[in-house]
Design a protein around this nucleic acid. Structure first.
Length: 736
DNA sequence: ATAGGGTTAG
């Protein structure tokens, strides 16, 4: 096999190469150390190549140095400090070297250094040329420095360089992205040549302002469109949620045989993801496979996201599991995918996996994982994230993360920690006020929620509809009829906020619980939207408390029209019949339930221990420590009995609560979780449990006693609210 | 040899 001849043997040695002159390129391009640069993927490698350059004397040539500096300054694998090190050692850098360094800084996260170096370059007597200015405009754009940009534009005109196509386009791009669309348009129209690139630069300005129709007119006017023009338009439509137009444009592009590239496919898959476009998404997937692009990390991420958002979580998961290289986006995609379809346990598992692989989470990770912690009551995990953020994210700008943290603490039962985060915030976003108010409401601290609302008003912040949901639910949980009415009418009259379903829901719940059925009915009658199942359910619940048979039947019928399989409604209406002694009707409902084969949502309670969430179903024996748990259950029963607790077995026959027919009361899921908590934690530790259904009356009174007997604070979240059990009492004052 | 437009997760 013939080896390629070295440029420095025989023929090459005929050339005399002076140290400071540029040798013929043809020779150097063939040199092994030269071709190594194009395959260089990290700085270690670069330093070896640098050594080779020195060995062959290339470090004395501006050509060789330009190549080295170019890699260090421009490559994503480079290192601008190393570039500067080489650059500073050069006695008289050429314009090319200056341009390379300036370009490198323009691409970096410190684009102001590009401008600094430009000033230095000129002050040392070098002349900027057509290669210098595009980097300067890019820097101005990144810095949003309109004034400096205009000054640099002035320099270009003075030097007569404005007709260079690269400069011309970078000026349009700068003005377009900096909010000076008029200037961009002017430069564009004054010039004699307009190609796809300059068109697209201008289009970008319209797109970033959301002016898609103006952008489209320009796009349609491009003489010869290239793939980037298509991408700009497609991603523009996708960005503002005009998915149909984004996707039909993509179909057009496909028909015209323009080959999509990575950017096109990423934008299209994201549009599919956000518009449930599974069919097209699958076609794109198979195209990606056919063209061997399936190992492209960005495309793989986009595919996982698309499948997850289109409901094919299992396809998404198997793609994710099969990915050889996972980056932070991959993990976030996957965690978000599970959260999106309410698979919170899976989301937490993926996050734990990510921790084990030592992948650093970022703000998007937190925004995806914190709601899963909140849902599952995974307080330890939530705390870990909070500590992590305090330790590692000093420059966290994303206020939503703080809001999510407050929400997580509140929903995990740690309202004190929620308050600490909230009051520690320097700037409080409206959402942070909102989650804090709802959090206090959830915990039954109605006065706290109402006080906080007053504070918000005092600070001159305008509340929104979400604020009022929290406020009204506080009134409802606290049974504050007068205040509820007041705030409801103030919302409409003073703040011009149209009540939505949740607002009506709170009011009807409030009025119903207080037995004010006439007022509840007239509110129902004047609603401008159809009441939903939740509203009828709270009315039905109120009817049960007050034994209102007639309205209860009506509410139940309304629920069955909307949702014939609503198990809870059958139970409630049956309880109303039982209370009125209408045993035939009780039996009739029970038969209906059986005949319809209605499956209730099984009651499930979870408790977190050392960042692991343990879930229990009624009479569950699947837990590895089941034996110990049941031993503890017996102990609890024994001590409850000693304390005089009488299980309400006589009522079980007719008072069908939500865990009706699920067997022995003392094996309800919350009892198992509490028993597990008691044997797994040190005496005195607060137990936090999360139940998916409303807590039953029996367990409620039992838990009150347990808190006293075992001297434990027990914080229980049920479907509606929190119960803080302490010293034999519950914070809900038996009102839930 | 160094220079222009579009790019993903919430």
């Amino acid at each position: 096999m013939a080896l390629p001849s070295s440029p420095f043997t025989s023929k090459a040695s005929a050339f005399h190469i002076p140290a400071e002159s540029n040798p013929p390129c043809s020779l150097l391009q063939k040199h092994p150390s030269q071709s190594l640069l194009s395959g260089c993927k990290n700085m270690e490698n670069l330093k070896q190549i640098h050594a080779q350059f020195i060995k062959f004397g290339l470090h004395n040539t501006h050509f060789g140095l330009s190549k080295l500096v170019g890699f260090c300054a421009l490559s994503p694998y480079g290192d601008s400090n190393y570039a500067l090190l080489i650059f500073d050692a050069i006695e008289n850098p050429t314009e090319i070297l200056w341009n390379t360094i300036i370009h490198g800084y323009a691409l970096s996260s410190n684009p102001e250094l590009a401008l600094e170096f430009y000033v230095k370059m000129v002050s040392l007597g070098n002349y900027p040329n057509s290669y210098t200015f595009p980097s300067l405009f890019k820097s101005c754009k990144k810095l949003m420095a309109a004034q400096i940009g205009k000054q640099v534009h002035g320099c270009v005109l003075k030097l007569g360089l404005d007709s260079y196509v690269h400069i011309h386009t970078s000026i349009i791009n700068m003005y377009a992205q900096i909010g000076e669309l008029g200037h961009a348009r002017q430069v564009f129209e004054k010039s004699s040549f307009r190609d796809a690139v300059s068109f697209t630069a201008l289009i970008g300005g319209y797109v970033s302002r959301g002016c898609l129709d103006e952008a489209r007119v320009l796009f349609d006017g491009i003489p010869v469109r290239d793939v980037v023009s298509w991408n700009a338009m497609i991603s523009g439509y996708a960005e503002v949620g005009r998915f149909g137009e984004a996707l039909s444009l993509f179909e057009n592009m496909w028909k015209l045989n323009v080959t999509p590239n990575e950017s096109t496919l990423v934008s299209v898959l994201s549009a599919c993801a956000r518009s449930a476009g599974l069919q097209l998404g699958k076609r794109v997937d198979s195209w990606i496979n056919r063209n061997g692009l399936d190992s492209n990390p960005r495309l793989a991420n986009a595919l996982v996201d698309m499948y997850a958002k289109c409901g094919e979580i299992d396809t998404a998961r198997s793609l994710f599991d099969g990915m050889e290289v996972k980056n932070i986006v991959s993990w976030n995609v996957m965690i978000g995918g599970h959260t999106h379809v309410s698979e919170y346990k899976e989301a937490l598992a993926v996050f734990r996996h990510m921790q084990l692989e030592r992948v650093e989470p970022n703000d998007v990770t937190f925004l995806n994982i914190l709601p899963a912690c909140a849902q599952m009551g995974a307080l330890d995990m939530g705390r870990w994230i909070h500590v992590y953020i305090n330790k590692n994210c000093h420059h966290l700008q994303n206020s939503s993360v703080w809001t999510s943290l407050i929400d997580m603490y509140a929903k995990c039962g740690s309202i004190e920690s929620a308050k600490q985060v909230f009051f520690g915030l320097e700037t409080k976003s409206l959402s942070s006020w909102n989650v804090m108010i709802s959090g206090l409401a959830m915990h039954g601290n109605a006065h706290g929620a109402i006080d906080l609302f007053s504070k918000l008003i005092e600070e001159g912040i305008e509340p929104d509809d979400v604020t009022f949901v929290g406020l009204l639910s506080a009134c409802s949980h606290g049974g504050m009829v007068e205040l509820g009415r007041l705030h409801f009418s103030s919302m409409v009259q003073d703040y011009k906020i149209q009540p939505k379903l949740p607002h009506y829901g709170c009011m009807i719940d409030l009025l119903g619980r207080a037995g004010l059925f006439d007022e509840a009915k007239s509110l129902l009658a004047c609603m401008d939207i159809e009441p939903d199942g939740a509203i009828w359910s709270s009315l039905l619940g109120a009817c049960r408390i007050h034994g209102n048979l007639e309205l209860g039947e009506y509410a139940a019928c309304s629920i069955f029209k909307l949702d014939p399989n609503n198990h809870g409604a059958y139970v409630l209406v049956s309880n109303i019949y039982a209370g009125a002694g209408r045993w035939n009707d009780v039996a009739r409902i029970r038969t209906m339930l059986n005949d319809n084969g209605l499956k209730k949502v099984p009651g499930c309670t979870s408790i977190e221990l050392d960042s692991v969430v343990h879930e229990f179903l009624v009479s569950d024996r699947t837990h590895p420590q089941s034996e110990d748990i049941y031993r503890m259950l017996d102990e609890i029963d024994r001590r409850l009995e000693m304390a005089g607790h009488v299980p309400n077995t006589s009522e079980v026959h007719y008072d069908m609560d939500e865990e009706w027919k699920e067997g022995i009361l003392s094996q309800h899921s919350e009892r198992l979780a509490i028993a597990f908590g008691l044997i797994s934690t040190k005496p005195g530790t607060t137990l936090r449990i999360v139940k998916n259904l409303r807590v039953c009356g029996n367990c409620h009174s039992a838990t009150k006693l347990i808190s006293k007997i075992f001297n434990r604070e027990i914080i229980a979240r049920d479907r509606n609210r929190f119960h803080h059990f302490k010293d034999g009492c519950c914070s809900c004052m038996d009102y839930w």
